[in-house]
């Protein structure tokens, strides 16, 4: 196979599955995934926080793993599967993770919340019955400057319990 070299100013055509739907868009090689998601796909639920891989506000699930979308180039996601916060709810029902943040008041200003929820999504896929310590480690790449994390941890505990009791949420969705 001869590798295709995209020039620096190329508009690369990207095709990927986003929240279960096939989406197409263009990106220069240097465009970061978070900017592609927000500006090309128009999904502004994914936030730009620190822009330096520290805060996790831009967390999305790419090919089944939670990643910081400010630290991935959009071209790397070509052909892949992306789940953003907009893809969590199903048929008008909040995802148990969203419900947990609602019920347990897991947010104040809400800026970190989409990233927190996507990190929690990855954690609960891997570890359906996490201890408090596992939850705290699981969200250690996501900064919240309001809550002090106590309510976020409670929200994820709520979600874990709900997901265990309602397995219909556990498959598909992305």
């Amino acid at each position: 196979m001869t590798a295709l070299i995209y020039p620096a100013d190329a508009k690369v055509r990207l095709e990927l599955t986003v929240n279960g739907e096939r989406r197409v868009g263009e990106a220069e090689p240097r465009m970061l995934l978070v900017h592609f998601i927000r500006e090309v796909l128009g999904l502004t639920g994914t936030h730009v926080g620190c822009d330096t891989s520290n805060c996790g506000a831009c967390t999305v699930v790419l090919n089944g793993r939670a990643v910081k979308s400010c630290t991935v180039f959009a071209v790397q996601a070509n052909g892949g599967s992306l789940l953003t916060v907009e893809g969590l709810a199903r048929k008008g029902r909040l995802h148990p993770i969203q419900e947990g943040f609602w019920e347990k008041h897991g947010l104040q200003c809400g800026y970190c919340t989409p990233g927190m929820m996507m990190a929690a999504y990855d954690l609960l896929q891997k570890s359906p019955n996490p201890t408090e310590e596992e939850i705290r480690r699981g969200i250690s790449g996501n900064l919240c400057r309001c809550t002090g994390y106590v309510k976020i941890v409670e929200a994820i505990e709520y979600a874990a319990q709900k997901l265990r009791s309602d397995p219909s949420w556990r498959s598909g969705g992305d």
């Binding site: 295709l4 070299i5 220069e28 180039f73």
Partner: peptide
């Protein structure tokens, strides 16, 4: 600076191809 400078981008599909690209580019 939070936007990287421009660069050309290519995907290698094998170790040999990666080495050739690194050598050429």
């Amino acid at each position: 600076f939070v936007i990287p400078d421009r660069f050309s981008y290519t995907v290698a599909h094998s170790v040999e191809e990666a080495v050739e690209l690194l050598h050429t580019l």
